[in-house]
Design a protein around this nucleic acid. Structure first.
Lengths: 191, 191
DNA sequence: GTCTATACTTTGATAGAC
DNA sequence: GTCTATCAAAGTATAGAC
């Protein structure tokens, strides 16, 4: 079973939103990338571009979470896991000519103060990421309040490093943030 | 001497770019907010929207650096300075209904892979911020390589926390990141 | 569900009078 | 340097045949 029209439209939109943002992406460009018809977009997403955007944020956000969790969990311990997440993100960024960073960050900033429907979609994705990070840090024996602070440091540190890395076309921000955050996690581990 | 037309246009554009991004902002909306004529925008910025965008990024970026440096330097020591930066950013964000975060981050992500002129403008601003942060950490006695890692943690941590904070409408990401980064700076201080 | 065609609005940008 | 008027293109969205 090959990808249906709806999936191709969603995948095309996800690609474009990630690389050039929500407002710079036109619906015609989306369907062209999906080899679909414009009417098909409005058939599968009656809410138009906004409904498609919300769907993309949720699906791409969940997909990225799965990817990062796999990288994290493949490391032997929590500290190595954090290092693996930042270094892996740096490798992907470099391999894709600084295009593939966070799939929803650009959209999140674009809509934060202008589109409540999309803002809530991005907020739910970020909340889920924090919950997943807290769980991994808590499982390593880090107490709840500290684990939550560190979860924000991991997710927020990754997002901020992506901003600097894409702008300057350098992976140094990712390696630096990874080193600092991993060290903070190590220090919080029980003796 | 009151603000000239060119300054009003730049200020209006800076506001709109910060709050809703580059692509969502139209030139007509900019001149309307500046109480100016459309032809005036093209008179003062012959390169059109892109030239105005580059100018806004540089001016707003330098202005934000000055603001953050003042907050940092008003604290009694480096660790308190880092705390003051994150907590001050949280206070501003909350006071402005989650609108006033980084003045150039949204634009930076929007143009990173699509507009080399604007991308370079944002890269130069971020580079200047890192240099300023390194100088303050080095002045406190932190060795060069560590100071640079921590500078990325401060600037990147702030940027990432802004993404999470604006999306979730919570200042928790800023306080959490500030706590983790300030602690990392404290550990790096000479005995 | 997919196709063609189109309505309507807004976009960035320019011309030319004053 | 500021004004009015306007252009060509691109934006989102819809209608209706098949």
């Amino acid at each position: 079973m090959t990808a249906g029209t709806k999936d191709r439209i969603r995948d095309s939109a996800a690609d474009l939103f990630q690389h050039q943002g929500y407002h710079a992406t036109g619906v015609k460009q989306i369907v062209e990338g999906a080899s679909a018809q414009l009417a098909s977009l409005y058939h599968f997403f009656p809410g138009g571009k906004e409904a498609l955007g919300a769907d993309v944020v949720r699906v791409a956000g969940a997909g990225y979470q799965t990817l990062v969790e796999a990288v994290w969990d493949s490391a032997p311990d929590v500290v190595a896991g954090v290092h693996a997440v930042f270094d892996g993100a740096a490798a992907v960024l470099e391999a894709t000519d600084y295009e593939d960073a966070c799939p929803i960050a650009t959209v999140a900033l674009e809509v934060a103060s202008t589109n409540e429907t999309l803002r809530i979609a991005t907020a739910e994705v970020f909340d889920a990421w924090i919950v997943a990070a807290v769980a991994r840090l808590a499982a390593a024996g880090i107490a709840a309040p500290t684990a939550r602070d560190l979860a924000f440091a991991v997710v927020g540190g990754l997002e901020g490093a992506f901003v600097l890395a894409r702008a300057t076309r350098s992976v140094e921000p990712l390696h630096a943030a990874g080193a600092v955050v991993a060290a903070a996690v190590e220090r919080a581990l029980p003796a």
